[in-house]
Design a protein around this nucleic acid. Structure first.
Length: 208
DNA sequence: TGTCCGATTGGT
DNA sequence: CCAATCGGACAG
């Protein structure tokens, strides 16, 4: 039995939240079963000033609407016409910041994850392919755009405290695939757990 | 309405 | 390196 993170946990800037979400447990209760995983990789996207963010320049559209709402809600969008990406809304209402969940260490429901990913049976060799990327983890956990705007205080999709990582166990790198973002691509706003084999792009060396 | 392109992934 | 595949953002 796990308890949802309090809404106050999300009431901080996206960079802080991205760091603090490492080690927390993401849970999805679906009709087919429950799946969960420990968050091992995140990226922060900060409101109007961040050229990489969907809300750059204060763009408030149908898609980005939930980012302008209160913290602790799911912002889920479709990318490349085929994958859904899960974000957690941060900061406060009217301040459109969010954290992209990029990778999980699978915890519960691994056979179901393997099935949803189209990998057939769960095997030792499959395990690293389940949730090692933003598109993979939503597919594995059955998280779709139907859950866009979901309240993370609910019982369907939520995050609970699990373990905490010390700063020595965490690394910050530039964000992935945001070449269009000018100088903002240099911000060290991607956070990963050092040594985790479940991240999207493995950490190899310190940046400096 | 038309065009361009993406906070990705998997295969060549 | 490149195709898949389609909704969002924006120009006209």
């Amino acid at each position: 039995m796990s308890i949802q993170l309090a809404q106050s946990f999300y009431e901080c800037d996206a960079v802080t939240l991205a760091r603090n979400l490492l080690g927390c447990l993401l849970v999805h209760n679906a009709p087919e079963g429950q799946t969960s995983g420990i968050i091992v990789e995140t990226e922060a996207y900060r409101g109007p000033m961040d050229e990489a963010a969907h809300t750059y320049g204060g763009r408030k559209t149908k898609r980005t609407q939930v980012m302008f709402g209160p913290p602790g809600y799911a912002y889920i969008y479709r990318i490349y016409g085929m994958y859904d990406c899960l974000n957690v809304v941060a900061a406060e209402e009217g301040c459109p910041e969010a954290v992209l969940i990029r990778a999980l260490h699978p915890h519960e429901g691994l056979p179901l994850m393997a099935h949803r990913r189209g990998l057939g049976q769960l095997t030792p060799g499959n395990e690293l392919k389940l949730c090692s990327g933003p598109g993979k983890l939503t597919q594995a956990m059955g998280i779709t755009r139907e859950l866009n705007g979901a309240d993370l205080q609910g019982n369907t999709l939520f995050i609970s405290a699990n373990r905490q990582y010390a700063d020595t166990e965490v690394v910050a790198t530039p964000r992935i695939n945001i070449d269009y973002a000018g100088e903002w691509q240099n911000k060290l706003w991607r956070f990963l757990v050092v040594g985790s084999k479940h991240v999207s792009i493995p950490y190899s060396r310190p940046l400096s």
